[in-house]
Design a protein around this nucleic acid. Sequence first.
DNA 1: TATTGTTATACTCTATAACTATA
DNA 2: TATAGTTATAGAGTATAACAATA
Lengths: 154, 154
Amino acid sequence: MNEKSKKSSETSIDYSLLPELLGYQLRLTQLAVFKDFSESVDDAQITPSLFAVLVVINANKDLKQTELAKAVRLDRSSVVSVIDKLEKRNLVIRKRVEGDRRTNALELTKQGRALLSQLTRRVKVHEQRLTENLTEREQATLIKLLGKILPDAR
Amino acid sequence: MNEKSKKSSETSIDYSLLPELLGYQLRLTQLAVFKDFSESVDDAQITPSLFAVLVVINANKDLKQTELAKAVRLDRSSVVSVIDKLEKRNLVIRKRVEGDRRTNALELTKQGRALLSQLTRRVKVHEQRLTENLTEREQATLIKLLGKILPDAR
DNA sequence: TATTGTTATACTCTATAACTATA
DNA sequence: TATAGTTATAGAGTATAACAATA
């Protein structure tokens, strides 16, 4: 039927069409990257997603929760629990906003900024590990090509 | 401090260093791909992960659960619930194995094979959508470059 | 009326640890 | 003793719907 399929045995598995699928390769890569990220920041108990939250809060003065939700593609209610968690860890505070008592202004605490700074250094090392088999040019190509996949869905 | 940062305003968010990170671009791409996959197979209630399970069972006669677990990177106990679910939907059966009564041989049912065949067609359309902005050559380059990221973690 | 944040709730996915039946 | 599958359980992450306060 399919000349690319290999016969299965006790030791080797036939993945059939999966290896040809971009979606599958993307998922495998992601899994490996996620694992390496976690190991890179291990004791900090931070996921890529939480790292992004810290970066975005840090870069946007008095960010509102709804803005954060949009930026990191979470529901407003999910942001509540994310911020609850970070606030309990003394990394983020919700500040009162003058002029609109419905909204909170998010801000990193001193501890949050210190952690972010440490994480940023570790993430850069992690990124170097990701790209150690790629030339500068290949890295640029890769980012460019990724950006061409479903550009309207971002 | 950082000349790449843009001032935030009501309408635009500063993502700071995130866009330069390969891990971040990979995650964004993945999110978009996952969403498009789900829409492509919508009524079938199948995730990329379940699709991979069906493909691997189909391609490997009398696959054992532990082998499947290894192939799709799940714990044995997670495979139990995955197969429970697929068995309830009459897509997969656990067959008795002569000579070793501890193990099950997994097999797609007729319904499972029919669904897989339909899914495979839809996934190919989905893949075409993913790559519609890429030349053949770019597709090959992309898969090649993805394979160079943390090759030892696979 | 519309928006922001919140709560209560539930669902999916996955893992760990302990168990059973077989080998 | 070791292995395959199972069960009970728990945790992370996320969403939906309804609600209160405020605009």
